[in-house]
């Protein structure tokens, strides 16, 4: 379990993060989202011990990660700008990772490389940008650590590979309780894989929620109601009317909403699944944040 307690970090006089409190459970997939400069990458680098926090603590099962080799052996960081030694091949990079990560698995490395059709003997600098990203993912996953921290990992990957990576991560989570923290500015990337979402804005946590909880409690309804229909019995977060068709986002249990509208005998009634983006737009607006400012 990762505990983030009152973390703050400044770049000079600029506050990158302030007062972050989070708890990331084992076997969960956490998504960090936020606009550029919201502090996602900084938080990830704090999580993997690259930066020392200016204030607060980051604990893995009660132990601080900063300058702690034992903890760091269980954490691998996939940077948004991967680094490979000049003129090195994947195999040589694997040797490097193996020299510092005790759990590094060569069979797993070979298997993953094969799955992504990557030639481990080829120099990485001859790879395309997407292939480099895949190489970094393969190397990170082969480290076989309990925690993997990914910064903009899906950027530059084609849809097929992106899907493969998500599948592999899901397998790892299911098989060995891998804890994944993914940072992205793209909500749709995270929707399929994350079970928790943290929204950062200007260095602070705006929202932290379990995706299922949010989805179960928030619904998008399209309906054509009779005139003078009484809607006081449901918690409407937002509503827009186009002719007689009303589109509403309503808080509450699906069963309760359905039974409420059924009584009013609507001409048309449909509950549409909400996208994660819509959920967050709603939550953000409810929290008083401007949409364009945060996403």
């Amino acid at each position: 379990m990762i505990e983030i307690k009152e973390i703050a970090m400044n770049y000079g006089n600029f506050p990158a993060l302030s007062g972050i409190n989070l708890t990331i459970g084992d076997g969960s997939v956490y998504g960090l989202i936020g606009s550029n400069g919201s502090g996602k990458s900084t938080l990830l680098r704090l999580l993997c011990g690259v930066y020392a926090p200016g204030n607060g603590q980051i604990l893995y099962d009660g132990q601080s990660v900063w300058e702690n080799d034992k903890v760091k052996r269980r954490v691998v960081y996939l940077s948004d700008e991967q680094y490979f030694f000049p003129h090195s091949s994947m195999a040589q990079m694997a040797d490097f990772y193996a020299s510092v990560y005790s759990c590094f698995s060569y069979p797993r490395f070979e298997e993953l490389a094969k799955r992504f059709c990557l030639d481990t003997g080829r120099k990485i600098n001859t790879f395309s940008k997407g292939m480099m990203k895949q190489a970094a993912i393969v190397l990170a996953l082969a480290c076989d650590t309990a925690y993997i921290l990914c910064d903009e990992t899906f950027d530059g990957l084609d849809p097929v590979v992106r899907h493969s990576v998500k599948s592999i991560i899901a397998e790892e989570v299911a098989c060995r309780s891998l804890t994944v923290v993914l940072a992205s500015h793209n909500l749709r990337e995270l929707e399929d894989i994350c079970d928790h979402i943290v929204l950062l804005h200007r260095g602070s946590v705006v929202l932290e929620a379990d995706i299922d909880d949010v989805k179960m409690n928030l619904h998008k309804v399209q309906t054509v109601l009779p005139q003078n229909a009484n809607l006081n019995g449901v918690d409407i977060v937002s509503r827009s009317d186009r002719g007689s068709l009303s589109t509403m986002i309503i808080k509450g249990r699906r069963g309760h909403i359905e039974s409420y509208f059924e009584v009013m005998n609507p001409k048309f009634f449909e509950i549409i699944p909400l996208t994660l983006e819509e959920i967050f737009i709603t939550e953000m607006e409810e929290a008083g944040y401007e949409l364009t400012e945060s996403l």
Partner: peptide, 16 residues
């Protein structure tokens, strides 16, 4: 001297 390599080395489980 390189930001990417500095981050890589800082993240590995070997004290600086």
């Amino acid at each position: 001297m390189n930001w990417q390599s500095a981050v890589l080395f800082a993240s590995i489980p070997v004290r600086r």
